[in-house]
């Protein structure tokens, strides 16, 4: 099989496990996510175990992967090299967090529950894509444009 097909299958299989994990974990339920964030009210700490379980498995697995020179289906690893904590990182994450708290959805669960055919996730994902496009229109310079004005 050619490499693009192998990469697509790898993405499909790994994200199916991701989606199953999300469904099992309770992360697909906005009411539970909001309960997890409601530390000043009726706090439900159970979703901390989702992040704890995921990070632990990933952390231990990275010790093994660290010995690989390259991934199975690509010539190199594509990992972010940037280590600087800047204003965009903190402000962007804060905006994301506000939206996460208001809706109870983050991107993974919102996309995964689209298959259940409910209205709210559909509206959420539609506006999420709009938000991404809006950001890029405002802040990402176009490769070919008139001048270099960010907006």
């Amino acid at each position: 099989m050619t490499r693009p097909i192998l990469q697509m299958l790898a993405a499909l299989v790994s994200s199916a496990i991701f989606g199953l994990g999300l469904a099992l974990s309770g992360m697909l339920d906005p009411a539970r996510v909001q309960g997890f964030l409601d530390v000043t009210g009726a706090w439900d700490p159970s979703l901390a175990f989702v992040l704890g379980g995921a990070v632990t498995v990933m952390f231990l697995g990275l010790r093994l992967i660290g010995r690989l020179k390259r991934p199975a289906f690509d010539v190199r690893f594509h990992l972010p090299e940037n280590r600087a904590i800047d204003r965009r990182l903190v402000l962007g994450s804060a905006l994301f967090g506000i939206g996460w708290g208001i809706g109870g959805f983050c991107p993974g669960p919102a996309v995964a529950v689209l298959s259940l055919g409910l209205v709210e996730p559909l509206v959420f994902v539609f506006f999420m894509l709009a938000g991404m496009i809006l950001h890029d229109r405002l802040f990402v310079r176009r490769p070919r444009g008139e001048g270099n004005l960010p907006a």
Partner: peptide, 30 residues
């Protein structure tokens, strides 16, 4: 899986907008 949404739809739209914009600006999500 349970999916219980108690947030009104207009707020869901605003939440989606913030999540899309914010994850783009902050280069990532959960």
């Amino acid at each position: 899986p349970a999916v219980t949404v108690t947030t009104p739809l207009p707020l869901i739209a605003i939440a989606g907008l913030l999540v899309g914009f914010g994850t783009r600006m902050g280069s990532g999500c959960t």
